[in-house]
């Protein structure tokens, strides 16, 4: 019996008039997969460092997120506490086990309750560490892994994200390069989330409303490079 797989492949090959064994075709496809050529990268994605950071901040705000630019990582606990206070939220936050978050001076905010683990949907605020930012669209790049639960990006009403200014790239392509360096060619973490602003829907009469299923608010804590 022919499997569905065989039927589909046979049909594709027939339509293309190929056998899949043609060497030049294979070389072309393999070459593209191995070389992953960059296509057209917009000029705005290729700015020098200071302008890149400025663009990133503008684009984050344009996507309806908010941003704090902090001089150093040591300022993060204070910024988290003041964010929660400013929105009348309880002084409680859930974070992943990420070493960079663990190393922050949480003791400076004795009133802040910091929990560690994935979200089960009952927490109002979650804190993650981004792998990268992309200036051209104000996008955060989050990687899943033992220390970075994906649920933190999605379930809390308020998502706070720490991002090192040094990790703000101009374009998406530079982030792929870094991911290949970290994980090896052709290998991806289980989930890469690009996040550009808080969750929204325009499904009722095309009225744009924030907070559809994911966080109602997205707040970026950009660290260093000021």
């Amino acid at each position: 019996m022919t499997s569905s797989r065989d039927t589909v492949f046979a049909s594709v090959r027939r339509a293309l008039g190929v056998t899949s064994q043609e060497a030049p075709r294979r070389q072309e496809a393999d070459g593209r997969l191995a070389g992953h050529p960059r296509g057209l990268v917009p000029a705005r994605a290729q700015l020098p460092a200071a302008a890149r950071l400025a663009l990133f901040k503008d684009m984050v705000v344009a996507a309806a997120a908010s941003i704090d630019h902090l001089p150093s990582a040591d300022d993060v606990p204070g910024a988290v506490a003041s964010y929660l206070r400013g929105r009348n939220l309880p002084p409680t936050i859930l974070r992943g086990g990420d070493a960079r978050l663990a190393a922050l001076p949480w003791h400076r905010e004795p009133n802040l309750d910091v929990w560690i683990g994935p979200s089960d949907g009952r927490q109002l605020a979650g804190l993650s560490h981004a792998f990268a930012g992309v200036a051209e669209s104000g996008t955060l790049v989050m990687l899943s892994g033992p220390d970075n639960p994906s649920t933190l990006n999605l379930l809390p009403d308020h998502h706070l994200v720490v991002l090192d200014a040094a990790d703000v790239a101009g374009d998406y392509e530079s982030v792929w390069t870094r991911i290949r360096e970290r994980f090896g060619p052709g290998v991806m973490p289980r989930t890469v989330n690009w996040i550009t602003g808080p969750s929204r829907s325009a499904d009722i009469e095309q009225t744009l409303l924030l907070g559809a299923h994911g966080p109602r608010s997205l707040h970026v804590l950009l660290v260093g490079g000021a």
Partner: peptide, 24 residues
């Protein structure tokens, strides 16, 4: 589609939950 610079969530999924992953 919507005139956004980028949609809010663009999610790249590769395989199931990995060893040690707290969710997925």
């Amino acid at each position: 589609a919507t005139g956004q610079e980028m949609s809010v969530y663009t999610t790249f999924s590769t395989g199931p939950r990995r060893p040690g992953d707290p969710d997925g």
